[in-house]
Design a protein around this nucleic acid. Sequence first.
RNA 1: GGUGGGUUCGUAUAACGGCUAGUACUCAAGAUUUUCAUUCUUGCAAUAGGAGUUCGAUUCUCCUACCCACUACCA
Length: 489
Amino acid sequence: MGGVRTALYNYLFAKKMGGDFILRIEDTDSHRFVPGAEEYIIESLRWCGILPDEGLDASGKLAETADARNPHAPYRQSQRRGIYRKYAEQLVEGGYAYYAFDTAEELEKERSTAEASGQTFIYNAATRGSLRNSLTLSSEEVNSLLQERTDWTIRFRMPADELVAMDDIIRGHIDVNTSTLDDKVLWKRADELPTYHLANIVDDHLMEISHVIRGEEWLPSLPLHYLLYAAFGWERPEFAHLPLLLKPVGNGKLSKRDGDKMGFPVFPLQWTAPDGQVSRGYREDGYFPDAFVNLLAMLGWNPGTEQEIFSLQELVEAFSLEKVGKSGAKFNPEKAKWFNKEYLRMRSDEELADAFMPILKEHGISADESYVREVVTLIKERANFVRDFWDIAWYLFKAPEEYVEKDAAKFWKAENVAMAGEALEKTDSAIAMEEYIRSMEWPMGKVMNCIRLALTGSSNGLGIADIMRFIGREEALARFHRAEERLII
RNA sequence: GGUGGGUUCGUAUAACGGCUAGUACUCAAGAUUUUCAUUCUUGCAAUAGGAGUUCGAUUCUCCUACCCACUACCA
């Protein structure tokens, strides 16, 4: 959800400003590769209607070769690995970065000894002088280590004590002193890949990115990114850090486990993890994509008016980063349902009937399309989701096989059954029946609920006249007689 | 621990120094209905605390509290 919202805001901003929305896959961590994840992202965006202007080829896959539509291909960073090394080395030559030869074990040892004395180990100006890197070793040593070993890195040489003055479109001005920052790894010899920080800056520059709109969790690395742009001598893009999506109860960032625990999806589409764990998706739960997009848009942004329902096109027109809030937004599953309900009501009866048909089929019902459409017209106001239709109106498709005990005890009484039977037998339409009951001065509620019990198996649901209009008088009588056989007075 | 960010009804938010702090979701009550749902009406409910600036502070400044993020050869 959080990722989709970030993509959505990027899309809305780009479209609003007449720009392009570019899809790039940042897969520089070879250890975290997840099969199917890239396809999942693309399919999710497509379902939401957030279509990239650039990044996908004609078949809808990530573009691998450059053409008029995709001038910056490839868009998968793992396929761009040849690009980054020279930029990393350019920084070393300029004195902005250096080679580091510390092993993971050595660094781990530094961390634990620091921790033992109540300190925190930071790889920066204060410590780099006593560690194994191209700043402390002789150039002969460095050269031979560069040749012999395959586990070295290139680290950014964070200035010792410098104020970085930054501007964020959403958060305004922020100052950070570099003394609190560390020498981030920019490039890893082990897998010949950059880390996020380097790859992101290089590619944003190469792809002519004007605006970086991302989650708030990136705010702490903004100074590094500022410094990187300065070190390269590149013009930097504008930045906007979005508020986080928080879990509905308690504190903290929305995580995939929350949904499983609290009964709502956190993924746009159902996702099966490599370990077989299945996470439910908004699509599979019956949400309309435009409802999902709408509810996501309202989490952290508002139009400044009281309008709540927006099509994607309307969102594009109304969107502005100035109206994005600063504080984290707790996700409210109840409101999410409300959005879907609003969209369900806006859907045509034809479309809803089409969506209902396969559900009917699952229940072994083959019904006439026009009949289903009329049912939908009657019940759409009572549902949040298409899947609710069956629970609301199943008895318009088949007779009840059992009766709610409590309701039967209340309404299936000799006098009621006698009145109901007579009313049913002596009239030929629901309207006539109602008139008959009235003219006999019988208690409408008791008689009607007695009939409803026979027709539907319980004492609540649709109006009797509506039910009879659909199932017909013959079927109504048949159900009534069956109830007489089955129920004990 | 350090650094940064944040804080208006339960939730999402409005009010960019000036109305009785508005709206939506949820919840409750009433009306309507043969029941349920819908619909309509009404209601409950908030500026974290403390200083300061000001004629006037939800809004600006500072302090405190709390929450969040980051603090990896992850993104």
